[in-house]
Design a protein around this nucleic acid. Structure first.
Lengths: 193, 193
DNA sequence: AACCTTTATGCAACCTTTTGCATAAAAAAG
DNA sequence: CTTTTTTATGCAAAAGGTTGCATAAAGGTT
């Protein structure tokens, strides 16, 4: 499983506490691999128990102590090996598509509203992506090697988001025709009993 | 959670056994919501215990008996209500993007190979999608209402797949430049210690 | 005759993820 | 001055998902 690897990846460049990791996940790796703070804390414990991370308690003025985690040599090695191993895809699970299988005159308006909501959310996300892109990845060819990988992941997110927006528009157009259909037109003529 | 709803959705038009459901999932809803046969069997038990499905044992010549499941009135109602509720997205979790964050000269070739493999897989899937589209959704405007929803889901899959292929090509181009870079060029000039 | 695949269902153990709760103190908002 | 937000960590229960195994018979392959 790869949450552990995602966490180690995030620790490649910097030592971080669980809290900082959770924050960092929100705007970087987490866009491709979401994790709650509980999951992150648990995984950090496991990883340091296995000797892949080292922990270091840092007292802070006023605030609670934080625990900084960093990759050990063993961790770096494990991560490097994992990258060379064969990967797995966990397909996204999206209620919306299952709901669309249930499309009917009675819920077309609701589904259109859901699509519209999702469109807005995606617009916001794309806005974030684009800001990151302009800030840090404006000239991809000049990036150091690792950053090029991050750029490619970002690019995948952007492309997928743009595609989703276009799909939303198509879906909304079609859902609008359903809502406007005359009563009784929802019967299925291809399945006469 | 929505595996139960995906299963009920699959049973909207036809009664099916667990085995048949598992097969059907492979070429329809399962493209958006994957489930193993164990999961399906378990869920079928739960759903019929809750009175949302009815079960009917059908003896077969030679083969083991099968258990046909179908939606009860309560099941139909529950499904209808769920569609009107607010949905959730479970983001896809894909090793590949996490791995890309680890890009380096040492693994660029491997990552390119993974991208290429994924490209091939996606091509096959797109081929399947397109066959389904041509067979059953050639003229979307003339479809009965529910089928329009299925068409929209299919369209999302197709669009996303096409987008992924395009991204793979871009990624492969960039990964190729990394593999061909002169030795030592992977050092990060933006982070001088 | 021995083996493999397909049909058909399921248990049990384990791992992962979500949800709800709990603590604690500083800083900011009202 | 009280409330809310932010920083910082964590336990425990429940739900969800994966992996491995087990059974059983028909039909096809070598």
């Amino acid at each position: 499983m790869a949450l552990s690897h995602a966490i180690m990846t995030a620790l490649l460049e910097d030592e971080m506490s669980g809290y900082e990791l959770a924050k960092a996940f929100d705007v970087s790796l987490g866009l491709f691999w979401r994790a709650s703070h509980q999951q992150i804390y648990q995984e950090l414990h496991k990883l340091s128990d296995r000797g892949l991370l080292h922990r270091q308690t840092v007292p802070q003025a006023g605030k609670p102590d934080k625990i900084l985690y960093g990759l050990t040599a063993a961790g770096q090695e494990a991560l490097g090996e994992w990258v060379l191993g064969s990967g797995r895809v966990q397909e996204g699970k999206d209620d919306l598509f299952v709901k669309l299988y249930n499309l009917g005159k009675d819920n077309a308006a609701h589904l259109a509203a859901e699509v519209e909501q999702r469109r807005k959310q995606m617009m916001q996300r794309l806005y974030l992506y684009e800001r990151i892109r302009r800030r840090h990845y404006a000239r991809p060819d000049t990036l150091p090697v690792r950053r090029k990988g991050v750029y490619l992941a970002l690019l995948a997110g952007i492309r997928q988001g743009e595609q989703f927006l276009a799909w939303c528009d198509e879906a909304l157009a079609m859902l609008a025709t359903v809502s406007k259909m005359p009563a009784g037109a929802e019967a299925d003529p291809s399945l006469p009993s």
